[in-house]
Design a protein around this nucleic acid. Structure first.
Lengths: 331, 331
DNA sequence: TCCAGCAACTTGAACGATCTAATGATGCCG
DNA sequence: CGGCATCATTAGATCGTTCAAGTTGCTGGA
């Protein structure tokens, strides 16, 4: 099968190249009858527009780029991977494809932007893991590159479209669940202050306790993410709590281990509903990653159509109930 | 900054467009002095070749496509994700970028090939999860599309380049480790016959036992992958074995649960060294995924240079030692 | 009858690179 | 000193698409 170009289709349909192009891009200017004849020719010949040629003319590639992280923590890494799956799925029906890139840090990432933009003419970027003082968003905005972030612009104004999950609502739901189960001394195991996500998760726990007029002071710990650090932090917290809300499944897993070793009884809820949580039967807060990805594509389509102002979406996480007690959790 | 084309560079260096093109693509035909002048202009202007234009002329896009699976089993899905990370990393220095696509089954995937090839002019595909009677490889070969597979062509002749991990060596190492630890009644928990990978993993266990003149008959089970099915299968196997080699971490996790519930003592080794295995401290066979991805890119570069015959690479997995006993494993 | 106005379609140029063929400069030999 | 091969470089065509500027044919109002 030799290559089918727009000229082949035009010849077969007995029209000019431009008419074929119009059928594809601005169908309303072509007469019904002609359009049908062209469409018939297109499907008969199996014609598909050559993206490279289209891109050269229009400057748009229908390609969006996403950063893929070196799988840092094996447990939490799966969150971004699931988001990526969702993004690829959602992009295809919208006529976009996803291209991957890696970068070691934000500065390196910006260098990659330049390289990708000049050589591949990317249409847009989807950023993940936004954080305070994120230089990437300002660079992209400054260079007028369309983008959407999964994660709100912590501390910066809402000048671009983003999708985020309501982290505070997640830990609030977890805390409420523990309250309903009769727990009264509910602690929180999270990360050091400064990360937007971590702070929000802590706040969800704190405000829920406050709403029930229960004390939270001294019942929380802030450590780096990880099983070991989680276990260590929980060790000295244990006598004072009978339940724990955690900022991640890694921390929750560490907590479970410390609890089992100590002989205490303490309920635990994790965050992110990772495969590990599923495997060990741990109750965990689940982010709607597939939906978040689909919304990112929606917002991106808007941005690329130059239609309207930036929009922001906050999605609600859900609590996946499994066991919360250490015995259960290790079952 | 207005766009810098090859003509801009040519003007600044005082040469023609073609000379600039030659500096980039066939440097040996350009005189040393001229080349330096051109290179200087390139870096001064920050010129980068426009891929779309190059692609239209040459028909090559420097883009390779990889299928991303809907994260089926959350535990085992991480294997392909880690491979994907490695692939993206390895592709960049070689001048290639990775594009993602999804497909529901092999037939759908072939339809996607056609679509991607005609509209994006992809250079090559990297296939994963090869299996018996894989129609994808024959389609690609027939249409002369360059590709490399991660996973050997089970049952088909070695007509293309591939990289695979020696699955049998992995379970053999696991079995040997258990033998060295003094176990003599070593069972195997795997998948139903027919999957190349599953059969190889079973064979590694069987031959290692046979080498030590130990019986294996009746000590293995074949079930669908998953924690539940693993637990169920191990239940009736338990009195007869004091150690278990598993075809996946999911099965191993199921086995651990059944063992704990039964009160028996039995060592367990998993496969794939997934985050779950790391989290629960399970000894597991680890595939060198980063290296496999890098080798795939190497082979692909060869294929795309039309240099030489197809090559095949078999990489050795390694055993990651953690605990093998259920007590340890649940710590 | 004439021409403005419109709808439907066509024509030539352009995007930015690479390929092919042609050109000018240089050296070598008889 | 002329002829010829060799090397370095240039000019023009080309890839497949879309944009901008036509062209054609028809309708209807003055």
């Amino acid at each position: 099968m030799s290559k089918v170009t727009i000229a082949t289709v035009a010849e077969r349909a007995g029209v000019s190249r431009q008419t074929v192009s119009n059928v594809l891009n601005t169908p309303e200017v072509v007469r019904e009858e002609t359009r049908e004849r062209v469409l018939e020719a297109i499907s008969a010949l199996g014609y598909r527009a050559n993206q490279a040629a289209r891109q050269m003319r229009t400057g748009r590639s229908r390609l969006i780029a996403v950063r893929i992280e070196p799988s840092r923590d094996g447990i939490n890494g799966s969150v971004l991977d699931r988001f990526l799956h969702g993004l690829t799925d959602a992009a295809a029906p919208a006529g976009y494809r996803v291209m991957l890139y890696t970068a070691t840090d934000d500065t390196d990432e910006i260098a990659t932007y330049e390289s990708l933009l000049t050589s591949y003419d990317l249409d847009a970027f989807v950023l993940t893991s936004t954080h305070h003082g994120d230089v990437r968003t300002s660079w992209l905005a400054e260079h007028e590159v369309p983008f959407v972030t999964f994660g709100r612009p912590w501390g910066a104004p809402d000048t671009h479209s983003w999708v985020d999950v309501d982290n505070a609502a997640g830990t609030a739901a977890a805390t409420r669940h523990l309250l309903d189960a009769g727990h009264r001394r509910i602690g929180f195991l999270g990360w050091p202050a400064g990360s937007g996500v971590g702070d929000a998760r802590r706040a969800g726990w704190a405000t829920t306790l406050a709403d029930s007029s229960l004390p939270g002071t001294g019942l929380d710990r802030a450590v780096a993410d990880g099983i070991e650090s989680g276990a260590a932090a929980v060790a000295d917290l244990l006598p004072s709590v009978d339940a724990l809300v955690c900022a991640s499944d890694s921390l929750a897993l560490g907590a479970l281990r410390a609890i089992r070793e100590s002989g205490h009884t303490c309920a635990v809820i994790g965050f992110d509903d990772t495969p590990v949580a599923q495997a060990v039967g741990l109750t965990s807060v689940s982010q709607p990653l597939t939906e978040a990805a689909a919304r990112c594509i929606d917002l991106l389509a808007d941005v690329l159509d130059h239609s309207g102002t930036p929009r922001q979406l906050l999605l609600a996480p859900s609590l996946v109930l499994r066991q919360t007690t250490p015995q259960g959790a290790t079952t």
